[in-house]
């Protein structure tokens, strides 16, 4: 091959003017060297993975556990929260993401809104403290500006309380038509069915268990029914754990929530893990409702020390992960 090229070059040199051939060959050689340096493996850039492995943003943020201590540490703002790895709080392993992508596609075929999410739960997630500010503003994400994309993508759902967030709601009443709003809901339509019909969500954040006590078997049965219903409707159910121990000291309901998430391979938003790092577990004196974070400014020292501050942030992280890894998946 090389000898053939040499012979052709020699003949061309003999036939044509050497003043044209030599500069041309020199230019081609330089060009080839440049291409090899830029793309040494010869990979086609079109097939580079869309997602970076963890896409962690490194930032310098102050240590917030001790506000008087001005020590500044370099920390990975998207890999841990108050010392708890994000992967333990926002649980969406690749196998679950892949499964949820199938659910998402089914939902799209059924006419669900790809930019809508719903909430199901009790007073602990009612407006205005749960997520609403991300629609209503102002807020400051501080080191978490990467989450802004999810805020823009799901705009309109954050401040919407919907049909399925009600004071005193528990796992039984999710399917009770008597608890459904007669103005918006059809006769004999359950709370959850009404919410799905009216808002057409692609994701549902489920925060139940604070009002379910005494009969863990029934709570588990109802939660499984809710997950199955959501999956059948093409809605990705995100099961959230809670900080309170209303049902007793055994943390029974959170264990049920974790078990159901694992059994059905659905995303688990394990808020309880990080709540344990907060003063009084991020709860007010009643032991159920979370401590306020009116400022919604994640540059403030108390941002990661309040129940609602961390609750909102981790919920947003989960929405961001689903948006990036499930909805934008192949």
């Amino acid at each position: 091959m090389i000898s053939l090229a040499l012979r052709v070059t020699l003949r061309a040199w003999l036939v044509m003017n050497r003043k044209i051939i030599f500069p041309l060959l020199l230019m081609l050689t330089v060009l080839a060297l440049f291409v090899l340096l830029v793309n040494p493996g010869g990979q086609d850039q079109r097939f580079k993975p869309i997602r970076s492995p963890t896409s962690a943003v490194r930032a310098v943020i102050p240590v917030t556990r001790n506000p008087n201590n001005t020590q500044v540490v370099e920390t990975d703002s998207l890999s841990s929260l108050n010392g708890i790895p994000i992967e333990q709080i926002v649980q969406l392993p690749p196998a679950v993401a892949q499964e949820m992508h199938t659910v998402y596609l089914r939902g799209q075929a059924l006419g669900n809104d790809p930019r809508a999410f719903s909430k199901v739960g009790d007073s602990t997630i009612e407006n205005p403290h749960f997520l609403a500010r991300f629609d209503e503003k102002p807020y400051n994400l501080g080191s978490y500006t990467r989450l802004q994309g999810a805020i823009e993508y799901f705009a309109g759902s954050f401040a919407r309380q919907g049909m399925a967030v009600q004071r005193g709601l528990h796992s039984w009443t999710v399917f009770d038509p008597m608890w459904a709003d007669p103005i918006y809901c059809e006769p004999n339509e359950s709370v959850i069915a009404c919410e799905f019909r009216v808002h057409r969500p692609s994701i549902v954040l489920v925060r139940l268990g604070s009002n379910d006590s005494g009969i863990p078997e029934a709570f588990e049965k109802n939660l499984r029914q809710l997950v199955e219903y959501s999956l059948a409707k093409g809605v990705i159910p995100v099961l959230g754990t809670k900080a309170d121990r209303f049902e007793g000291p055994g943390n029974t309901n959170n264990q049920i929530i974790r078990r159901v998430a694992a059994d059905y391979q659905v995303p688990l938003w394990d808020y309880d893990r990080v709540a344990q790092t907060l003063p009084n577990n991020g709860l007010r004196d009643d032991g159920i409702h979370m401590t306020y974070f009116y400022e919604h400014d994640y540059t403030l020292p108390n941002a990661l020390q309040t129940g609602h501050g961390v609750h909102n942030l981790t919920a947003l992280m989960m929405l961001d992960r689903i948006w990036r890894e499930v909805m934008q998946g192949d």
Partner: peptide, 8 residues
């Protein structure tokens, strides 16, 4: 469900 509807 009917029995516990107003439990909370």
């Amino acid at each position: 469900r009917e029995l516990r509807s107003f439990e909370t």
